[in-house]
């Protein structure tokens, strides 16, 4: 813990790098993954190939994926972000599909009865009702990405992994402990915050459903 006290600026800087890499990755993954998930619920034959391929991607070890990407995306944060996006797709796509599939048929029938078009149905009924499940996918992806991003330091992407490598270089546990504590705290607080958000969403949905 001494390291945290003695080098707050460096820790803060690396934490900011880390949050930025993970944040961008998750946003991009959501921007790609949610539409893919929606398409899958419309074109069912895509489900097998898409979920299998993102599942296979997920098993590729991070150091290997970074290495495989380097010839194409170079060293640094861009490679880290591409890799994290690929890893995050599985949870986000799968949960989007599950969330939309889980929308009660009664709600759909009612909406159709009100004369909603396909697009209105999606935006006003399916997505809002699927949101808590989609969010759970985002949560899983975020916690995993915070951990994987530590390895991105290998390819010059910065982030909290830098502290761990510093510690290995100097055989000094202090920076390692500092990097670990901050990375764990980030993961746990992201997990907690997204879980809270999910609870709030569910409650609101429950309420509006009760009203409607």
């Amino acid at each position: 813990m001494r390291y945290l006290v003695e080098h707050p600026e460096r820790v803060l800087q690396l934490t900011a790098d880390h949050v930025r890499i993970v944040g961008i990755s998750i946003l991009v993954a959501a921007a790609i993954g949610i539409p893919i998930g929606i398409v899958v619920t419309r074109l069912r034959w895509l489900e097998g190939p898409i979920l299998t391929s993102s599942g296979v991607l997920y098993t590729v070890p991070s150091l290997a994926l970074f290495a495989i990407l380097i010839p194409y995306t170079g060293l640094g944060a861009s490679t880290a972000i591409v890799a994290l996006v690929l890893y995050s797709l599985l949870a986000i796509v799968r949960n989007t599909v599950a969330g939309i599939d889980g929308v009660p048929p009664a709600a759909l029938d009612a909406a159709r009865g009100m004369g909603m078009t396909g697009r209105q149905l999606l935006v006003l009924v399916e997505l809002p009702l699927a949101l808590p499940v989609i969010l759970a996918g985002v949560r899983l992806a975020t916690v995993a990405a915070i951990g994987i991003a530590t390895i991105a330091a290998v390819i010059g992407a910065g982030g909290l992994g830098r502290l761990i490598f510093d510690g290995i270089r100097l055989i000094d546990p202090e920076p390692i402990v500092a990097g670990t504590v901050v990375a764990s705290a980030l993961a746990l607080s992201a997990d907690w915050a997204l879980a809270r958000l999910g609870i709030v969403l569910r409650r609101d949905l429950g309420r509006s459903a009760g009203e409607g």
Partner: peptide, 19 residues
């Protein structure tokens, strides 16, 4: 500062690419 980037080849590459 972009210190501690990696090995010789990596840092050289970063220099050539203007990073």
């Amino acid at each position: 500062r972009k210190l501690n980037l990696g090995t010789s080849a990596i840092v050289h590459q970063a220099l050539v690419s203007g990073e």
